[in-house]
Nucleic acid binder design. Sequence first.
DNA 1: GTCTATACTGTGATAGAC
DNA 2: GTCTATCACAGTATAGAC
Lengths: 198, 198
Amino acid sequence: MSALPNRDRQAERREATRREIVEAAWEIARRDGLGAVTLREVAAMIGMRSPSLYSHFESKNAIYDAMFGDAWTGYLAEATEAAKTLPDDPRAALEAIAEHFFDFSVADLARYQLMNQRSIPGFVPSEGAYAPSVETMALLHRTMRTIGITDEADIDLFLAITGGLVDCQLANDHGGDRWRRLLPRAIEMYADNVWRQS
Amino acid sequence: MSALPNRDRQAERREATRREIVEAAWEIARRDGLGAVTLREVAAMIGMRSPSLYSHFESKNAIYDAMFGDAWTGYLAEATEAAKTLPDDPRAALEAIAEHFFDFSVADLARYQLMNQRSIPGFVPSEGAYAPSVETMALLHRTMRTIGITDEADIDLFLAITGGLVDCQLANDHGGDRWRRLLPRAIEMYADNVWRQS
DNA sequence: GTCTATACTGTGATAGAC
DNA sequence: GTCTATCACAGTATAGAC
């Protein structure tokens, strides 16, 4: 359908190869940890030599960068979908948001470390890869507004509580639910505080 | 005074060299980040070649291990001291504990990453280095008991809230006080929840 | 444009001389 | 204990085959 069908096919092929590389990197990261990803193994998994990766990514960190963008884009998509079916009750809505973030985070340690911790020495996400993260924050602010929370400090506190529970869960009880069980209570506590005047 | 003065002097000298190595590693970690520590630079800082470090530490991770033990020993010492002069008021005591932990954490990012995050790929603290961390938890439990908090879930929630604030501060507003300012309110919120029946 | 072969630098780690 | 020399492996640069 395009005026330049050849270009499109090339671009598609190129994008497909980039995806292959990133998917291979995710596989290693999930299996052996984020720091265990090596260009040689990524290349071997898709039948290449490591220098060939440089035809598609300018550095190893550029691969991490694509993974970072991937992860936040995935979360943004899920959160956008979830925002459509939030409970009407403000407290139930808060809990739904927190539980969704918690379960998403805990489902993939490597992904969480890449998204929310500075786990790779020297890696700083690019502006482009950071965009879906910023967009996710914007979505959170809009959603919180519909719940009746507009004060930025209130949102900051919500983020700290939710993130703190996730961190404790992953660091001290990986695979368990010791902190997951505290989530409803934590949200109740938070809601009591935010709406303590009314 | 010893029966084997020579042995003592050797042991002292050996321990002094170990300290030199660890201090050099801390200096690099604070300046360029935890992951930027290299054996060659550590060795150069104390006038050695890198292979010589292996006479004192069996691996690079063993140096990280000593640093990990260092950091928690330092915090345990401060916390033990601080526990002696806690306010009588339970809420004020809680806030003092949380503020002390927060300020200690924020004062040194590299130290915090080593103590509380899995920032070094493949590094797992040894049992010995972990001991002061366990001891710190025991101290926290004892202190919380004097405040009137005995339920383990209550303590877990306290840890999550405090740690969450620290993480947000370091990740999103390093050097600022955006989450530090929320700490008194967060502790108030927590106390309201813990003592909501009374 | 895509991939390979080769090679350079820096890393943690080891072997053996002194 | 500390050195020199060296290793295996990492990320990466370059030149050239197709």
